[in-house]
Simulated scan of single mutants.
Amino acid sequence: MPAETLGAAHGGEVRRRRARRAMPRLLAAALTCLAAAALAVGAGLGAVAVLHATPEQPNVPLVTFERTGG
């Protein structure tokens, strides 16, 4: 049946079908963004924890020079 004979009701149905298909995609995109943000925050906190877990290095100079004539 041609689209012209179906009338406006058919066009509304098509839009509703597209909207129903778009909602799961939108939800999946939003959940993906939230998961990526949570992963980034977790990685950042993990990096900070690793840096704080390393032992403090002694502040001893590797080379010392003797003072002369002073």
Results as ranks from 00 to 15, higher is better:
Glu56Thr: 14
Ala38Tyr: 03
Gly42Leu: 11
Thr68Tyr: 04
Gln57Ala: 15
Val48Cys: 06
Leu39Val: 09
Gly46Ile: 00
Gly12Tyr: 02
Gly46Phe: 09
Glu66Ser: 07
Leu45Asn: 07
Leu31Ala: 15
Ala9Asp: 14
Cys33His: 03
Val14Pro: 01
Val48Asn: 06
Ala37Gln: 10
Val60Phe: 11
Val50Trp: 15
His10Ser: 09
Leu45Ala: 13
Val60Asn: 06
Leu6Ala: 14
Leu62Asp: 14
Ala9Asn: 10
Leu34Pro: 00
Ala35Lys: 03
Ala29Arg: 11
Leu31Lys: 09
Leu34Ser: 13
Gly70Tyr: 05
Gly12Ser: 05
Ala19Leu: 07
Gly44Ile: 01
Leu34Thr: 13
Val63His: 08
Arg17Val: 04
Gly11Cys: 00
Thr32Met: 10
Pro58Val: 01
Thr64Pro: 00
Arg16Gln: 14
Arg18Ile: 05
Cys33Thr: 14
Ala29Ile: 02
Val41Thr: 11
Arg21Glu: 15
Phe65Gly: 00
Leu62Ala: 15
Gly7Cys: 06
Glu66Met: 02
Ala40Asp: 03
Met1Ser: 12
Arg17Glu: 08
Pro24Gln: 01
Gln57Lys: 14
Pro61Ile: 02
Leu45Arg: 13
Ala37Thr: 15
His10Tyr: 15
Arg17Leu: 12
Cys33Arg: 11
Arg25Thr: 10
Thr68Val: 12
Ala29Cys: 07
Ala47Lys: 05
Gly46Arg: 10
Thr32Val: 03
Leu39Met: 12
Val48Arg: 14
Ala43Gly: 13
Glu56Phe: 08
Ala53Met: 10
Leu27His: 06
Thr5Phe: 08
Gly69Asn: 07
Gly46Glu: 06
Leu45Tyr: 10
Ala28Met: 09
Ala38Trp: 06
Asn59Phe: 08
Gly12Ala: 11
Met23Trp: 13
Thr32Gln: 03
Val41Met: 07
Ala9Val: 06
Val48Gln: 08
Ala53Ile: 01
Arg21Asn: 09
Gly70His: 03
Glu66Asn: 04
His52Ser: 11
Arg18Val: 05
Arg67Gly: 05
